[in-house]
């Protein structure tokens, strides 16, 4: 059947308007539920660097009770008018200076996990964001109360190779970072780095981690990301440390 041009134009308009309305309604109607999922997942990821969390509901409960979150800048000073929950780490990552001499403008969230009786800070959780082989990688790293020893790390990725670079999401790989140290004895930033090759024992080396066979570039991405963010938080961690050692001396 041959339709007139007028019919076709009206048909197109009706189709566009109907689809538009359906899409707008579904997007608006489902947004609260989606945002809640994203927020809950973030809290779960933060807590998972220090403990086993059963599900997202439990994560939200523990987060409400035991997490103290705030925002700092590169100098380690607290930024008063920002909330840690509102900081978009991937957006902040774009502000990373091109040259090392430029000032780093990134806003940096810190999540302090208090002990069960809330008397002291047990862990500091910091976000990570960087680039792997094919796309972005991100995660959280938790640091023990001594502000130097890595407690645990959680990594995620957008598009690393399955079975190779994508292994950074596996527990076996993430466990390798535990108890490694960020600073050397003199307090210089050493970061923690994955090595080339797999199956080597780095138990005695506090800054080296066994690598992933076939995923050296993803490993390098993880190393750069850790170095970048430990660098960002360096002043914060050091000033916290000197504060806490003064308190204990008193």
């Amino acid at each position: 059947m041959q339709h007139s041009n007028f019919y076709i134009i009206m048909y197109t308009i009706a189709l566009t308007v109907t689809s538009g309305v359906i899409l707008a309604l579904s997007s608006l109607g489902l947004k609260p539920a989606q945002d809640k999922n994203v927020d809950m997942e973030k809290k779960q990821n933060i807590l998972q660097t220090v403990m086993v969390v059963k599900d997202r509901e439990e994560a939200v409960k523990i987060y409400g009770e035991r997490v103290k979150a705030y925002v700092i800048n590169f100098e380690g000073e607290q930024v008063k008018d920002k909330k840690a929950e509102d900081i978009d780490v991937s957006g902040e990552y774009k502000k990373k200076p091109k040259k090392e001499t430029d000032a780093d403008e990134r806003k940096l969230p810190v999540y302090e996990i208090l002990s069960a009786d809330k008397s002291k800070t047990e862990f500091y959780v910091l976000p990570l964001y960087g680039f792997g082989l094919w796309g972005n990688i991100w995660g959280y790293v938790s640091i023990k109360g001594d502000l130097n020893t890595v407690n645990g790390i959680k990594l995620a990725h957008a598009s690393e190779t399955p079975g190779l670079g994508a292994r950074i999401t596996e527990d076996d790989i993430q466990k390798r970072f535990a108890n490694k140290q960020i600073f050397d004895i003199k307090g210089a930033l050493m970061s923690v780095a994955m090595q080339k090759g797999e199956g080597n024992n780095y138990d005695t080396d506090k800054h080296k981690v066994d690598g992933m066979s076939g995923a050296t570039i993803t490993g390098k991405g993880v190393n750069n990301m850790l170095k970048d963010y430990f660098g960002c938080y360096k002043k914060f961690l050091q000033s916290k440390k000197s504060n806490s050692s003064q308190v204990s001396m008193n």
Binding site: H3, I8, T12, S19, L23, S26, L30, Q34
Partner: peptide
């Protein structure tokens, strides 16, 4: 009712709507 001259676009639009709604539902 579909005009044969624009049927591919109509099909594409309807498939897209289904897929996007499915994606949103899964996410929620």
């Amino acid at each position: 009712t579909i005009p044969s001259r624009i049927r591919i676009i109509v099909q594409l639009a309807i498939v897209s709507v289904f897929v996007i709604v499915l994606d949103q539902l899964l996410k929620a």
